[in-house]
């Protein structure tokens, strides 16, 4: 009987091996964000709990845990509770296909990129359901904004992914990384790498595109009615999504686990360390942008998505196909 369940147990074990470091990373991402922004604004940041404030994330987590969960009486309580669970669950489930090294992956599936894209396109449900189930004007307006924004920027992310797929010839994430042995895609595909990064900011509702939770006009947007653990799940989900988007960016453009040069001191470092470094670099850009740029106006956000990014990434897809065709560089030929 044990043999029948052994494969399931190993998969659960692998999942825990990914999820526990991920949740730790989420906790310390909140700490790093506060420290980095503090440094950029000439403040000190959290420094009271533990050395250099290193225990601050856990203090915050424990505080949220022992608060009361308040469910508004006019809300739709089942769906109200479903929304944060969905957001959190989706942000974790995408990690099943992320390759951390040459043979470090839970599910090496053929359509890895599509799986990631599908999961990230589902993220909008958590927000839109939360806005509707709260039965509150602020939450509903925040959810509508967020849904429109995420759908708009998904289109250009999809086209960016198509351009990368054209140069790889496979939807498998491992093969996408291995195709970058000679040169990382950030060099030939620099313009769409920038588009991907900006769209990732919009997709994760981060500044300067954090309109769904614009404090000044919407109090705090879709999660205004949530308290305690339900709020914590939204928060964790949002930060896990940031890490996921950075991981996606480093796989598509920065060569995943590959070292920058294939010469001795660089190849000594294990691949997972390079991957973590690249993710950290992209996360730093997320935080840096938040500390630097003011919030976009809503119509400008939509204009940027539909009238600038969409045509440009479409042209880039055609251009990539034409260049690959013309120079006989198409993979599989």
């Amino acid at each position: 009987m044990i043999e029948a369940f052994l494969p399931i147990l190993t998969v659960v074990g692998y999942a825990l091996l990914v999820l526990v470091p991920l949740l730790l990373a989420v906790a310390y991402l909140t700490y790093a964000e506060r420290k980095v922004i503090a440094a950029m604004q000439l403040r000190i940041g959290p420094n009271v709990v533990g050395w250099f404030g290193l225990l601050q994330p856990f203090a915050d987590g424990l505080k949220l845990l022992h608060k009361e969960t308040i469910i508004p009486s006019r809300s739709n309580s089942i769906i109200f509770l479903l929304a944060p669970l969905l957001t959190f669950g989706l942000s974790l489930s995408a990690w099943a296909v992320i390759p951390f090294g040459p043979d470090l992956v839970i599910g090496n599936i053929n359509v890895g990129v599509l799986y990631l894209f599908a999961i990230s396109s589902l993220g909008v449900y958590g927000i839109i359901i939360a806005g509707w189930a709260s039965n509150s004007r602020y939450a509903f307006l925040g959810a509508l904004r967020s849904a429109a924004q995420m759908i708009s920027y998904e289109v250009s992310i999809g086209l960016v992914i198509i351009a990368i797929l054209l140069s790889v010839g496979s939807l498998n994430l491992m093969q996408i990384v291995e195709a970058q042995q000679t040169v990382w895609f950030v060099i030939p595909h620099l313009p769409i790498a920038i588009i991907f990064m900006v769209s990732a900011l919009a997709e994760t509702n981060r500044a300067p595109f954090d309109l769904p939770e614009a404090e000044a006009e919407l109090v705090s947007g879709y999660n205004v009615e949530y308290s305690s653990m339900t709020f914590a799940l939204f928060f964790l989900g949002e930060y896990a999504n940031m890490i996921l988007m950075s991981a996606m960016g480093s796989i598509l453009f920065l060569g995943g686990w590959l070292p920058p040069f294939h010469i001795i001191p660089f190849t000594w470092v294990p691949g997972i360390v390079w991957f973590a470094l690249k993710i950290s670099l992209l996360l730093f850009i997320f935080v840096w942008v938040r500390a630097t740029l003011p919030r976009y106006r809503y119509d400008q956000l939509m204009r940027l998505g539909w009238k600038v990014f969409l045509p440009f990434s479409l042209i880039w897809v055609v251009l990539t196909a034409a260049v690959l065709m013309g120079l006989h560089l198409l993979p599989g030929q």
């Binding site: 599936i109 053929n110 359509v111 599509l114 799986y115 894209f117 599908a118 396109s121 589902l122 909008v124 759908i151 998904e154 939807l171």
Partner: peptide, 14 residues
Amino acid sequence: EFLAMILVIVYVGA
């Protein structure tokens, strides 16, 4: 699996 992912992306996601 390709059809499965496209179903999720197009119908569920959009």
